[in-house]
């Protein structure tokens, strides 16, 4: 990684003085130019604090942060010319219309009045907002607002784009709209740092994923690399009859406490080392005992299994993680 788009070294941030809450506890991260880097973590992991520091909104207590090759503390203004920010809450003037918003931001990026107008029309067209006219943003739907917000963060054609939980609070349709927009951006060579609580979102959009917990990066790699962190592939067996789940646990070629049982889906899941041996032994054992299976599948672990594995099992009770599953 000769010339990373984002470098974060040993960044610390504590809120509220003595006895305050530690948000970032020596966080390190490098993001390669032209890639999408997901930052995945539960609520309170420090994701938003990281984005606010990267986008020059917040000063770190310690550590070094460079964005687009410039130090965010000493060259904040130069950094601001090169970044776009999509925060968790819409950063728009709600009283004004979409076009008015984009023109205003364009002028503040010093595009000049005429160019700002052209750029606003371009972006409205691109994000399917061309017909919104003078309607104030406060009357927009959640998805429209998010798209306009994204358009606003792209006015200056930023080298680096920060997306802080871009789909939180959106319905599935709004989420799909935002995902499509992000995918189309990546083709243009923009570097994207994307925070999310949704494993699926990171899996869908990111080239690499940093898992953040307690203000540090606890794992960083491609989705495949992270999946291999939990070690083994898994075998999933779906039974026809939920009453036979207990009996079937003993048939899997692993210690019983390694098997997860999902009674609702009549599903047993267990890590395996040798895929083919495991598959044939399970099939044989099912035939011998006469337990009927609806489906048997070998698969890589899902990101949520990785996530739970990395952050500790107490997170399993976090409803947001469940929601993302």
């Amino acid at each position: 990684m000769a010339d990373p788009a984002i470098t974060v070294e040993g960044v610390r941030k504590k809120y509220g003085g003595k006895g305050g809450k530690v948000a970032l506890d020596g966080l390190d991260l490098q993001v390669t130019r032209g890639t999408v880097h997901g930052v995945l973590g539960p609520n309170g992991a420090g994701k938003t604090t990281l984005v606010r520091i990267l986008s020059t909104l917040l000063r770190p207590d310690a550590g070094r942060v460079e964005v687009a090759g410039r130090d965010v503390l000493t060259h904040a203004r130069e950094v601001r010319f090169r970044i776009g920010l999509l925060g968790q809450h819409a950063a728009l003037d709600e009283e004004l219309g979409g076009r008015q918003n984009l023109e205003m931001f364009g002028r503040l990026y010093h595009l000049g009045t005429r160019h700002a107008r052209v750029r606003a029309d371009e972006l409205l067209e691109r994000f399917g907002l061309a017909g919104t006219g003078r309607k104030p943003v406060k009357q927009y739907s959640g998805g429209m607002r998010r798209r306009l917000d994204l358009a606003a963060s792209l006015i200056s054609e930023p080298e680096v784009l920060f997306l802080d939980e871009p789909t939180t609070g959106l319905d599935p349709r709004g989420r799909a709209e935002v995902w499509d927009s992000v995918r189309s951006l990546v083709g243009g060579g923009t570097t994207v740092l994307l925070t999310t609580q949704y494993l699926e979102e990171a899996d869908q959009l990111a080239d690499r994923i940093a898992v953040v917990d307690g203000g540090r990066v606890i794992a960083d790699g491609t989705a495949d690399q992270l999946k291999s962190l939990t070690g083994a592939d898994r075998i999933d067996v779906t039974l026809r009859d939920a009453d036979q789940l207990g009996a079937a646990v003993a048939l899997l070629p692993v210690p019983e406490d390694a098997v997860t049982v999902d009674a609702d889906r009549r599903l047993l899941s267990a890590p395996v080392t040798d895929r083919m041996t495991a598959l044939s032994s399970v099939v044989r054992a099912l035939e011998e005992t006469g337990i009927e299976a609806e489906d048997i599948a070998l698969r890589r672990p899902t990101l949520d299994e990785v996530f739970l594995h990395l952050t500790g099992d107490e997170r399993a009770s976090d409803p947001r993680v469940k929601e993302a599953v």
Partner: peptide, 16 residues
């Protein structure tokens, strides 16, 4: 409002 964050992350004059 969130809009103040956008202003502050932009290269505009601080006091504007």
């Amino acid at each position: 409002k969130g809009v103040i964050d956008r202003f502050r992350s932009m290269p505009m004059t601080n006091g504007a």
